[in-house]
Design a protein around this nucleic acid. Structure first.
Length: 797
DNA sequence: CCGTCAGGCATTTTT
DNA sequence: TGCCTGACGG
């Protein structure tokens, strides 16, 4: 917002109109290559339009062409178009593509995320929400700290009311556009009315701090629109044309916001896909898109159904799966692409084997040894349901030295060191930022623990001043002893000095940032830290300072960061991408792996427990999103055994596998590495012939030692180990186990044990198996296992 | 005040 | 199993 001068946009709205005649005769290159449906969606400019855009149907292309068309025909001037997205990434892409089509986008001040647009509006009318226009935006850390304080102050048991839970309840209410007074009694009652009470206190506290959290940005603006019709009318006049991306992800507050703004002219075009609504858990209402025609009578519904991404087999599989959902608007995706390969389905013994197999598939594809053209690593992705599934792949890929990239980890601006540094900057800009002060008062350690901080709080509260002022009073009263007092005085001096330097503009803001980090001792703090993360954190701080260069001043930077919070992936070299299905939305890859399709994991048990059929349907949409990311090759896999929180569990194949159409799926034969027959029953119970076939395959047949050691994967692993000096297979440990099902094994069998991993049967004497494991197990674990072996019977193998 | 240890707990995540 | 939080002792 820093770079944008608001008044300009508002004044521009009142300026005389452009020559519409001249513009109408301009050529329309942005129409080139649009199919009839896309063209229809672009040309229907007036009134409500719902663009139902299936996966890979050129939604962004149509959306940007529509903007270009609005401008080019002179129907709207740049500042009269409100174009909202959910993520900054999407906003950026839209800007890029529009400017590619028509040249300049500077004149489009109202293209951005819901939140960034709401901030612009709220800054102008802050007083109507009880805030000053320079209010700060809290991040989730600040929010949590505030909640903890409130819970403690209310003398409520923080075990029964964890701050996290309270935060998510309040977020949920804000998503539904409920102010504390508007929370329905039934909801409030569900939380013993304590929740609402705390919600009210939280809002009051935010106002005192002149702060807003993310939910407030929307909630306040909606409330202002509802209570001040003249303000609403003003914006209805400004925004003559409204465009919304990913409409299926809007929550109630966003929906109300849009409906209020579109009320008069109804020039609203929403783009979305009900089949890709996967954010219900954070407040998104699929109902919004399903209800569109009722909400906006006379709406034109345009379906984009020609898919430009995937092969017919992939589309057929995705369609069959999503068909299991009820209450869809319904689309039939089709493509002109060549048939391509069927989907591939493969079952594995366990998750480690699955990771190993996928690693080998990736290497094979990379070299083009699977009889196809070679695939670049950048063109492959592994999409998992939950982020903890990534670990198995990371472990495996590190071992074999396969380059990978995890998408969506902790974001740059959410890292501890960045938040700390930002808190220092915030204090320098406004010394009464109490939350920032709390964050850094004892970081680095200044000998100011709970007690000292309590004193500061008390001094501040009893005098009705900020914490910095409170600390000053405390110091003047000499009510703080020893090291703490000296350090606190130094910190306060520093804050004053930095604040003065900003006002005098003695240094550039980049220099000042460095001065602040040095003088506060924060840089030294990490330099002295011997943990392995410390160098990386220092690196991040350097990057932060570098990022400052792109801004005019610290204030501008802080505003940017509080809204942007995303992290630019530097693309150095070709790597396989590993990410969650959620993170994959909007992306596409020629080769996609979808591991972990086991009931309970995917669909997630928790999702089904919490939301029942609604949850299951959202999981199914997630499956749909996963499959439709694939352009050419899509491989689905599942494991019969998986380690969950250190415990081994046997699993059933996902019910979504049963929904795959056999005609479009190839069932692959997994490498036969392990002995035993455990788990086959589960697979054979599936109704799907494809699954039954997988269950009957060699995975559950005995494999000889020779098979294992002669397998290409094993040999390559050994080669690599010796070449790169990597960790050799760990020293073996011998174990003797009493088993009731010893007869199932032969000497020389390659076996897998739930706790110790892979091993080899050395001897069998009576009921005792002597096994040599690849990895040494800890004595404690061995003893534990032997104790339970009798009761477990033959289960472990 | 800071380190250590036991116990609880464990999807998906943007702004 | 492994991480984070809170309690406890130096």
């Amino acid at each position: 917002m820093s770079s944008f001068d608001e008044s300009e946009a508002f004044e521009a709205a009142a300026s005389p109109s452009l020559s519409q005649m001249a513009m109408a005769t301009r050529p329309t290159p942005y129409m080139d290559g649009l199919n009839p449906a896309q063209r229809a969606a672009v040309e229907q400019l007036g009134g409500p339009v719902l663009m139902l855009a299936g996966a890979g149907t050129g939604k962004t292309k149509a959306l940007t062409a529509r903007i270009a068309h609005l401008l080019n025909t002179g129907t709207a001037r740049p500042h009269e178009i409100l174009a909202v997205t959910f993520t900054n990434k999407a906003a950026r892409e839209m800007k890029d593509r529009v400017s590619h089509l028509i040249g300049q986008v500077e004149g489009m001040p109202w293209m951005g995320t819901f939140h960034s647009i709401c901030v612009k509006i709220l800054r102008r009318h802050a007083e109507l929400a009880g805030l000053k226009s320079n209010f700060t935006i809290l991040d989730s850390d600040d929010q949590l700290r505030l909640m903890k304080q409130l819970i403690a102050a209310a003398q409520i048991d923080d075990k029964r009311w964890p701050a996290r839970q309270l935060a998510s309840i309040i977020d949920g209410w804000k998503n539904r556009a409920w102010t504390p007074g508007q929370v329905p009694a039934s909801e409030a009652g569900a939380y013993d009315h304590k929740g609402v009470e705390l919600y009210g206190q939280y809002q009051r506290r935010l106002r005192e701090l002149n702060a807003a959290d993310f939910g407030d940005l929307l909630l306040h603006v909606v409330t202002i629109f509802q209570e001040h019709s003249e303000v609403l009318a003003q914006y209805q006049r400004f925004f003559r044309y409204i465009l919304v991306d990913e409409y299926q992800d809007t929550n109630v507050a966003q929906y109300l916001w849009l409906r209020l703004l579109a009320q008069g002219h109804q020039n609203i075009c929403c783009v979305g896909d009900d089949d890709q609504s996967i954010y219900g858990w954070r407040g998104a209402e699929v109902g919004n898109i399903l209800r569109f025609e009722t909400d906006f009578p006379g709406a034109h519904v345009v379906r984009l159904e020609q898919n430009y991404r995937s092969t017919p087999h992939i589309l057929a599989a995705a369609s069959a799966v999503i068909d299991g959902n009820k209450g869809r608007l319904g689309k039939t995706l089709w493509t002109e692409k060549e048939e391509g390969e069927k989907l591939r389905l493969i079952g594995h013994w366990d998750g480690e084997e699955e990771a190993r197999w996928i690693g080998e598939e990736i290497e094979a594809a990379q070299c083009g040894t699977r009889g196809q053209a070679a695939f670049d690593l950048d063109r492959m992705a592994i999409l998992v349901r939950a982020s903890h599934q990534m670990r198995a792949f990371e472990d495996r890929f590190l071992t074999i030295g396969l380059p990978y990239r995890v998408i969506g980890g902790p974001r740059f601006y959410e890292r501890m060191e960045i938040r700390d540094a930002m808190a220092y900057f915030r204090l320098a800009v406004s010394t009464d930022d109490d939350l920032a002060f709390e964050r850094i008062v004892n970081t680095p350690k200044r000998g100011l623990g709970d007690k000292a901080q309590q004193k500061i709080q008390t001094a501040a509260r009893s005098n009705g001043v900020s914490l910095v002022e409170g600390a000053r009073i405390l110091l003047a009263a000499k009510d703080l002893g020893g090291k703490g007092a000296v350090e606190l005085a130094r910190l306060i001096d520093g804050i004053d000095r930095w604040h003065a330097q900003i006002r005098q503009q003695a240094d550039t803001h980049v220099e000042l940032a460095e001065i602040i980090l040095d003088e506060s001792g924060y840089t030294t703090h990490w330099q002295n830290d011997k943990t392995p993360e410390a160098p990386g954190r220092l690196e991040n701080l350097k990057e932060l300072v570098k990022a400052l260069e792109g801004f005019e001043n610290l204030q501008g930077f802080l505003e940017h960061v509080s809204l942007i919070m995303d992290n630019e992936q530097q693309s150095d070299g070709a790597k396989v991408s590993i990410m969650t299905l959620h993170a994959a939305k909007g992306l596409e890859f020629p080769m996609v792996f979808l591991p972990g399709w086991e009931d309970g994991l995917f669909p997630s048990q928790r999702s089904m427990d919490e939301s029942g059929l609604k949850g299951l349907e959202e999981e199914r949409r997630l499956a749909y999103v996963g499959i439709t990311r694939a352009e050419e090759i899509c491989t689905i896999s599942f494991a019969a055994n998986r380690r969950v929180y250190g415990q081994w569990q046997s699993a059933l194949p996902s019910r979504f596998i049963d929904e795959l159409p056999s005609a479009h799926v190839d069932v692959l034969t997994p490498p036969g590495l392990y002995g035993g027959s455990f788990g086959a029953a589960g697979m054979a119970s599936s109704a799907n012939p494809a699954v039954q076939e997988a269950a009957g395959s060699t995975i559950f047949e005995r494999a000889s030692k020779a098979d294992v050691y002669n397998s290409p994967g094993w040999r390559r692993l050994q080669e690599r180990s010796s070449q790169r000096g990597m960790r050799q297979p760990a020293q073996a440990s011998h174990m003797t186990i009493d088993m009731t099902a010893v007869s199932a094994f032969c000497v020389g069998d390659r076996v897998f044990h739930q706790k110790f991993g892979y091993g080899e049967v050395l001897t069998i004497e009576g009921d005792k198996l002597d096994i040599e494991f690849d990895k040494a197990g800890s004595k404690k674990v061995v003893a534990q296992y032997i104790q339970s072996a009798d009761t477990v019977g033959d289960a472990p193998f």
